[in-house]
Nucleic acid binder design. Structure first.
Length: 425
RNA sequence: CGGGGUAUGGCGCAGUCUGGUAGCGCACUCGCUUUGGGAGCGAGUGGUCGUAAGUUCGAAUCUUACUACCCCGACCA
């Protein structure tokens, strides 16, 4: 007997406050709960997926050579005055005073902190290039938080920053990050597109967005089927022009036709150049002993938003369909039994410990409930496979394997590990 | 911030127009039956109706103010 039950509070009726499917399912599947507008609790099941995504992101970013650090959420006003953003950022920047009446803000992003860190601790071009990243909670006092975790005010973000002596070196790191991002979204099992983008408030010259494709996406993407051309459609629309009227037209200066798709922005990479390093006077001496302003890049991924975006892309009437790499439960074991001493339940417990030892994420439904309730809930939370230990176990000594995609397989005891390990390779 | 809407047990809702002291489904607890697609029967627990003030013999219901939340717009990972 464990000292705690699973805390997975399911909701049968769709909560009225949730408009979009990912928000509805995250609530219904007991993954998140609201605390205030745009501010959420992450419950064990949702937090598990969040951490799985975080770890994939961490691994791939670290593979580029970037080193992980952790910067403060609370940031002093003077750094924001330095970068000239204290006034510019607007009310989205949540400001407050400490007991000594000094001004602070909750970090909506960390360019100020990292540029300050680097200018104080780097003196020579020999220490470049340098790439650092963190996975941190951000706070943006959005005018209108929406769609649950999709546009929260508090959210989890991976932000990486790179520093260079020249633009060529910046471009190299930028391309390496771009490749890392592709690997990340491949590993997350998500269909995505990379589009040219507007740099917005962050600033800089070159920037591209990574979008998870989903019909419910807030952004419209314009791309060519013949080539790699892809841009955020908002960059192509003229004033008063309907964005959907772009479909079938030609890209400016090209003979290729525009296709449109909806996307959810989950990543954005920038070549910032010297915007921040200029304002904040971040320099190093070059090989000639001359003072050079640093060239910077920054690279963001909305880790918590990916949880919602994944669901927007992969769901059905029954509930969530998690890609296997981020499913909080890969396998749910559903024994159908009367008494805890029944062979079905005893075997289920053995199977649970066997599969857990094999490194799989397994949940054992140990409730004395009927098949219908168990399978429905297993499907709602998006478990990849349900192993049913019931009728077929009693009659033919086989376990029925119900995949979330609808396919059925019957396996003998001795075949289970092999089958599942292969499925999750 | 502009426009629209909602607020009644954990969730979904009715009751508000035509004031009379709160109801339904689900969930939850107990018992018996049931156990392959969200079980059945019976018995229970739980709210004073977002907050405050007012009108009235009496307010979930009428009046006023406030607050919270949701949707459409600008912003963003």
């Amino acid at each position: 007997m464990l000292a705690s039950k699973n805390f997975v509070p399911l909701i049968k009726d769709t909560p009225a406050e949730a408009e979009v499917i990912s928000h509805q399912l995250l609530l219904r599947a007991g993954m998140i709960r609201k605390v205030a507008s745009g501010i959420y609790n992450w419950l064990p099941m949702g937090f598990k997926t969040l951490k799985l995504i975080e770890n994939i992101v961490r691994e791939e970013i670290a593979n580029t050579g970037s080193q992980e650090i952790f910067m403060p959420m609370v940031q002093p006003r003077d750094l924001w005055e330095d970068s000239k953003r204290w006034d510019k950022f607007g009310p989205e920047l949540l400001r407050f005073k400490d007991r000594h009446d000094r001004d602070f803000c909750l970090g909506p992003t960390h360019e100020e902190i990292i540029t300050d860190l680097i200018r104080n601790n780097l003196n020579s071009y020999k220490e470049l290039p340098l790439s650092l990243f963190q996975i941190q909670t951000k706070f943006r006092d959005e005018i209108r938080p929406r769609y649950g975790i999709m546009r929260g005010r508090e959210f989890l973000m991976k932000d990486a920053y790179s520093f260079h002596i020249n633009l060529e070196c910046l471009n190299n790191t930028y391309l390496a990050m771009r490749e890392a991002y592709k690997k990340i979204f491949d590993r997350l099992g998500l269909a995505f597109k990379i589009v040219k983008a507007d740099s917005g408030a962050i600033g800089g010259e070159v920037s591209e967005e990574f979008h998870v494709l989903a019909e419910s996406g807030e952004d419209t993407l314009a791309f060519s089927q013949e080539s790699e051309i892809a841009v955020n459609a908002e960059l192509l629309v003229k004033e008063n022009e309907d964005i959907n009227s772009l479909e079938g037209k030609l890209f400016p200066g090209s003979s290729e036709f525009i296709k449109l798709a909806k996307g959810i922005e989950v990543g954005h990479i920038f070549q910032l150049g010297s915007v921040y390093s200029n304002n904040m006077n971040a320099t190093v001496l070059d090989e000639n002993g001359e003072r050079q302003t640093l060239q910077m890049g920054c690279y963001g991924i909305g880790v918590s938003r990916i949880v919602a975006a994944s669901i927007e892309q992969n769901n059905d009437k029954k509930g969530i369909i998690w890609p296997k790499s981020i499913a909080p439960v890969q396998i749910s074991i559903l024994p159908i039994f009367k008494e805890f001493s029944d062979q079905n339940f005893v075997f289920a417990q053995q199977l649970y410990s066997r599969l857990t030892k094999a490194g799989l994420r397994v949940m054992l439904d140990d409730r004395q409930e009927r098949f219908g309730k168990k399978i429905t809930e297993s499907e709602l939370i998006g478990s990849c496979y349900a192993l049913v230990i019931g009728k077929t176990y009693n009659d033919q000594n086989t376990i029925e394997v119900l995949a979330r995609n609808g396919t059925k397989t019957e396996l003998r005891d001795s075949e289970i590990e092999k089958f599942l390990i292969k499925a999750f390779q």
